[in-house]
Computed example of a mutant assay.
Amino acid sequence: MIILCFFLAHWYLSVLMQTFFLHRYAAHQMFTMSKGWEKFFYTLTFISQGSSFLSPRAYGIMHRLHHAHADTENDPHSPEYSKNLFDMMWKTRLIYNDILNGHDSVPAKFKKGVPNWTFMEWLGDRWPVRLAWAGAYTLFYIQFATSPWLFLLLPFHFLMGPVHGAIINWYAHRYGYTNFKLEDTARNLLPFDFLMMGESYHNNHHKFGGRPNFGGFRWHEFDPAYPMILLLNKLGVLKLRLGRDEAYM
Rank of each mutant, 00 (worst) to 15 (best):
L8T: 08
A9K: 01
L16C: 08
Q18I: 14
F20C: 07
L22D: 02
H23Q: 07
R24Q: 05
R24K: 05
R24Y: 02
Q29D: 07
F31D: 04
K35S: 13
F40T: 15
T43K: 08
L44D: 07
T45C: 13
F53L: 06
P56M: 03
P56E: 04
G60W: 01
H63V: 05
R64I: 11
R64Q: 13
A68M: 10
A70F: 12
E73P: 03
E73T: 05
H77Q: 09
L85V: 15
D87V: 09
K91E: 01
K91F: 03
K91N: 06
K91C: 06
T92S: 08
I95D: 03
N97I: 01
N97T: 04
I99P: 00
V106F: 02
P107L: 01
A108P: 01
G113V: 04
N116D: 07
N116Y: 08
F119M: 14
F119G: 08
E121Y: 02
L123R: 07
V129W: 10
A136P: 03
T138S: 15
T138I: 13
L139A: 10
A145I: 02
P148Q: 05
L152P: 05
L159D: 02
V163I: 11
A166N: 04
W170G: 00
G176I: 00
G176D: 06
N179R: 12
A186W: 10
R187I: 11
G198R: 00
F208R: 02
G210K: 07
R211W: 01
F217S: 04
I229T: 15
L232G: 09
G236I: 09
L240T: 08
E246D: 04
A247S: 13
M249G: 15
M249R: 11
